[in-house]
Design a protein around this nucleic acid. Structure first.
Length: 475
DNA sequence: TTTTGAGTTGTTCGA
DNA sequence: GTCGAACAACTCAAA
């Protein structure tokens, strides 16, 4: 009887799982294993909330496996050492895993693959890096032509996996370490981990003529309503496959009741293609993890003021929409996408703090924190990334608040000091008269801070510093 | 090889 | 209040 290890990393699902399907096709018995890798555990890029979500996700996966008569094997230690030992214990031949393109994963898998028969299977994306290339064989570095080429490719059919219970190793087949109880998910975290919840959310978002996906183009911009899919944590850990999401988007496009609805579904599909774009970019240009994609902007003279950085982190910059977003992140492990752009622009442009500082903070706090998407997003906002957007594009925290949180509901939810401030000044509360401040119980400098920078001046300073970096690079 | 068209997400100013 | 232009020139993709 042949035995295979299914090494689970960020593919916590039993449906449409090409690594699992390949293992099932190759062996009579499959042993699912998750390795608690202390390198990732102690990494400054990994925070408690994402770890907690992962642990809870593993518990959900373990329950799904138990329901099918199997068991999730958990082992703590260096992946190579653990897998070597486990392979010997089980008498397994090969190890099957979903290919992960992030730099640490590639390095780890190369090391494991040199010592053990590791079979990597594509499944993280619909189209793997290397499958979407220009006519001359070079990777795309601009989104729109990438998306065109991506959409021209046929969607591969789902992994057919006959995961019958007789294919799973019985509980007790090999010993498992217990799953750690810590860290715990914050009670404010709105995400329930697991494949079933991911499928439920996908259906609720995409199915039916009234599906929220049809309002997505407009609703996703608003901070004060739930207009996004809420699927990013599930895609991050593969509780939902990219192909399942893309197929649902294509089906919604197909049956869109109106042109506007169709645009909504198209907008969501584009977000999924952005995810793939940044995974491809990180694969082809791994240097973006450390440096700017555009080398001409490597020499920006960041101010990197520690006190400013602390105010940004703790949500006390004096700009309500920025502070609301940073507090939402701290409380829930998630931040609205538009809010991510607003706080990122504020950090890089208004405070002139290196985008890498913000990138790392996001990775420490976002449940959906993914190295490729997070890096791509930060470099895009900093103006150092793959697209040629004009560098003078600086978000105004006041104007963004007025446009995307017009009543101030988002701000009031996360910044209770401002609860009684009227809507017309909620995004610029320093404009209240002293009498009005006293009346609303929000005295600037006492209940709520004065702005730590003047946006108009900060904008001019950023433009100057960016211009200097560019002209410097030209010499 | 050369040329041409195009490029996620913004803000401000002045008519 | 709304609208178009300026912000500055650059690189990429594809014909």
């Amino acid at each position: 009887m042949s035995i295979a290890l299914w090494w689970i990393r960020r593919d916590l699902r039993l449906s449409d799982n090409p690594a699992l399907a390949t293992a099932c096709a190759a062996a009579d018995l499959v042993v699912p294993v998750f390795v608690l890798d202390p390198t990732l555990w102690r990494s400054p890029w990994v925070g408690d909330q994402r770890l907690a979500f992962l642990m809870a996700g593993l518990r959900a996966l373990a329950a799904d496996l138990r329901a099918r008569g199997g068991e999730l094997i958990v082992r703590r230690g260096d992946p190579l050492t653990v897998l070597q030992a486990l392979r010997a214990e089980c008498g397994a031949e090969a190890i099957y895993a979903e290919r992960d393109h992030s730099p640490y994963a590639r390095q780890r898998d190369e090391r494991v693959g040199r010592a053990l028969p590791l079979r990597l299977v594509d499944g993280l994306t619909v189209h793997a890096p290397g499958a979407v290339l220009k006519a001359d064989g070079a990777p795309y570095t601009v989104y729109t032509p990438f998306a065109r080429a991506w959409r021209a490719l046929p969607i591969p059919s789902p992994a057919a996996c006959r995961l019958t219970s007789d294919r799973l190793a019985r509980p007790g087949f090999v010993p498992s370490d217990p799953l750690p109880e810590q860290p715990a998910l914050s009670p404010a975290c709105p995400w329930t981990p697991g494949e079933a919840e991911a499928q439920r959310r996908l259906s609720a978002f995409t199915e039916g003529a009234q599906a929220p996906i049809y309002d997505y183009a407009h609703a996703r911009q608003r901070l004060d309503i739930e207009g996004t899919s809420g699927l990013s944590p599930y895609l991050r850990f593969g509780m939902l496959s990219a192909r399942q999401a893309v197929s649902a988007a294509l089906a919604a496009i197909e049956s869109a009741p109106t042109g506007a609805a169709r645009q909504g579904a198209e907008a969501w599909l584009n977000e999924l293609i952005w995810r793939e774009f940044y995974i491809h970019i990180l694969h082809h240009f791994p240097h973006v993890r450390r440096r700017s994609f555009r080398s001409d902007l490597d020499g920006i003279a960041w101010a990197n003021d520690e006190a400013d950085f602390a105010a940004w982190r703790e949500g006390r910059t004096g700009y309500p929409v920025v502070d609301a977003a940073m507090r939402q992140l701290a409380a829930t492990g998630w931040m609205h996408n538009r809010a991510r752009m607003i706080v990122a622009s504020f950090l890089c442009k208004d405070l002139l703090i290196d985008w890498r500082w913000g990138e790392r903070w996001f990775m420490q706090h976002l449940i959906d924190g993914d190295p490729a998407a997070n890096n791509g997003g930060w470099q895009w906002t900093a103006g150092t990334g793959t697209d040629a957007a004009p560098y003078f594009r600086v978000f105004s925290p006041v104007r963004q608040g007025v446009s995307y949180d017009p009543e101030g509901a988002y701000v009031r939810r996360w910044v209770p000091e401002l609860a009684r401030v009227p809507a017309d000044v909620i995004h610029a509360p320093w404009q209240m008269s002293p009498a009005q401040q006293a009346e609303t119980g929000c005295v600037i400098g006492r209940e709520y801070p004065a702005p730590i920078v003047d946006h108009r001046l900060a904008r001019v300073r950023a433009l100057t510093v960016y211009r200097q970096a560019q002209s410097h690079a030209r010499d």
